[in-house]
Design a protein around this nucleic acid. Sequence first.
DNA 1: CTAACATTCTAACGATGTTTAGAATGTAGA
DNA 2: TCTACATTCTAAACATCGTTAGAATGTTAG
Lengths: 222, 222
Amino acid sequence: MNKRALKDLLYEQVARIGKATSSPKRLELLEILAQGEKTVDVLAAEANIDIKLASAHLKVLKEARLVEARREGRFIIYRLSGSDVSNLWVNLRTVAEEHLVELKVAMDQIFSTPEKLDPQTRRGLLDKARRGDVVVLDVRPSDEYANGHLPYARSMPLAEIKKRLAELPTDKEIVAYCRGPFCMLSAEAVQLLREHGYQANKVADGLPEWLAAGLPIETGES
Amino acid sequence: MNKRALKDLLYEQVARIGKATSSPKRLELLEILAQGEKTVDVLAAEANIDIKLASAHLKVLKEARLVEARREGRFIIYRLSGSDVSNLWVNLRTVAEEHLVELKVAMDQIFSTPEKLDPQTRRGLLDKARRGDVVVLDVRPSDEYANGHLPYARSMPLAEIKKRLAELPTDKEIVAYCRGPFCMLSAEAVQLLREHGYQANKVADGLPEWLAAGLPIETGES
DNA sequence: CTAACATTCTAACGATGTTTAGAATGTAGA
DNA sequence: TCTACATTCTAAACATCGTTAGAATGTTAG
């Protein structure tokens, strides 16, 4: 076999990863899976697509070895095949945010106050959380919190906030986060909290971004 | 506009980056551009494709804002639109190397002695190069060397090595590198050097990998 | 064993991407 | 202005992908 054919083979393999990440739906599935393992029906519901279609996309991701599946009873549970896949998602999204004007514009329209974090402010948030100067609030579903969350974060899924308002302090800043910059849960949480007189803000980071920045996380129930 | 439509818009934008990296040829073009800016005909020659096809692929990369173009006389010069694009290429290739067995097998077939570098050995190489314990040899074309090279590296393009053998020491280890793990220049250089009695080895790293690892580089002619 | 259920497989459609060749554009130099 | 040249644009053939619906598979509970 000649040199060119061999080279072509190498790039073709990398292109398998590129192809797997070339569909919006598959990217959304990857982001959801970056929060923890999920069954097909949960993934389909979260991504708002038909189960059959979700299954087809998951098959593509599996063939590219970006996800793995295992059966548990009647359900098949998918998970990312490594933390490097989560990092790749963050990397792709970051490049898109950096270079695609259309994405910047869309983000500005959706999220009035962008709260991007740089390494320094991430550390700062960590320190303030440790000292108890802010309450870090994880508003994702509780299974995602259990799978991994920011240090010192408390779990309060968006759907439960209204009933559990009393648990939150009114004299401290509350910092809400969810799945990442594209997730709208924290924005809704902030709106709800502010309406009830709390000092609430959101940060764009989710677990994948935190991990990609090389920062530590915690796991386990609240 | 409803929430779902807005979300779809976000993922669609990221998918533009994925789509741009879903073709082997485009990935090869990105890797070449990660060594420095190039004209279309040089890119086409390096990637072994027709100029028209190269132009078409470059157009796709440009629409995804991964590359930029400027005209200089009769030539149009393309360059990556940021160092994050170079990092993305490294990230994609690394994920592929990690998860795709087919790629591992192909790499083993082509490169008999894989010389992957971890952060520690990279630092070690840097130290040895500084002390002069090894000669780091950049065997890429000289314009790529001028655009950026590993610290303390000497430029000796593959095509010139035979004539310039006398410049190299026989009592020191020579470490050759080129464009990255997929590039065959350094492997050929090592073979040539060994045939002439030199102690030569190669490392998989190229400039993009070195930069992605957060290590410093040098620029300028030799 | 049967029914209910989650998921995948198969087949089909239109939409999109890759590649090639020929025409068109824009620049440099005579 | 005319010619040579690098590059892009256009059109067309062909392959691949996304999506949908219906059939098939494998598992659990009765």
